[in-house]
Amino acid sequence: MYWLVKREFWEHRGGFFWAPIITGGVFLLLNIMGIIAAEVIGAQHGINFGASGGLRHVIAEMDTGDLSKVGFALDMAMYSAMGLLIVVLGFVVFFYCLSALYDDRRDRSILFWKSLPISDTSTVLSKIISATMLAPIVAVITGIIVGMLQLLILAVTLSFHGVNVWQLLVLAHPFRVMANLIGYIPLYVLWALPSVGWLLLCSAWARNKPFLWAVALPVATGLLVSWFGIMGLFDLPTIWFWKNIVQRGLFSVFPGTGSVFGHQGDIAVTGNQGMDFMDLGNTYQLLASANLWIGVVVGLGLLAGAIWFRRWRDDS
């Protein structure tokens, strides 16, 4: 299995490895450019925060509550790097799943893979692991590194304005942020399962244009349901369908959608200052929702279908 996943990584090095790295690099570059622009504009207008030691006084005069807000703001700076990576990750996983069981059928290299003593179940399993674990792990590690660099850049910038770097960094919680991000991955695996299952099924089944099938089928059905709804023919739960079939089936590969759509707002936000929304105590409340587990069951069913088609689809 290790080698099967490694094989996926070789094939999709661009999406799994370079996409997050480049995104992270661009993110940092934009930040540095922004800071430089701010400094230049500030200098042109004769504004200089730190020179008089004003900023230092501001910090010195803060009470503990304010300080924890500074810490939270710094944590947010770290998460913000992750935010962009998460969007990229979502796209990478989405298109990876669509092509995973289709591309080798199209270029007939499936005949080579199938000439090796590897069961179709392990092949499909290796693709699931690559999509739901390998890709997020690489993205999270990149996110953490970028986040740390981001903190460092902020700290260095502020130090030019006379603010003590270390005093500030102590206020942030980089390790808690890391733990939260890494800890989110298992939840992502479960939440993404129906989407991954649907996309892999289309990828294994479609004779051509898996993207069109994967997207058009649920959307067309959704439109049909809405159309009947408008005419009042049947009492179909239109909104429910769009939310729970279309959106869940296609977009669950985007991390964080579970926390946004997964519950009906009945989750009590806990934790200090009620601000660390990524706290695992919060995110893992999703485990209590039926939505997640129904998705897991449906996802497993779809994956079984994908394995079956992988075994018997005969068109190369």
């Binding site: 070789w10 094939e11 080798d104 270029d107 007939r108 290299s109 499936i110 005949l111 080579f112 893979w113 199938k114 000439s115 090796l116 003593p117 590897i118 069961s119 075994r311």
Partner: peptide, 21 residues
Amino acid sequence: RGKLMGDVCFIADVAVLPRWI
């Protein structure tokens, strides 16, 4: 099939090796 392929090798017409590898 899984067991069988341990003892069988197969070359289909040329160019079925994946192009990226």
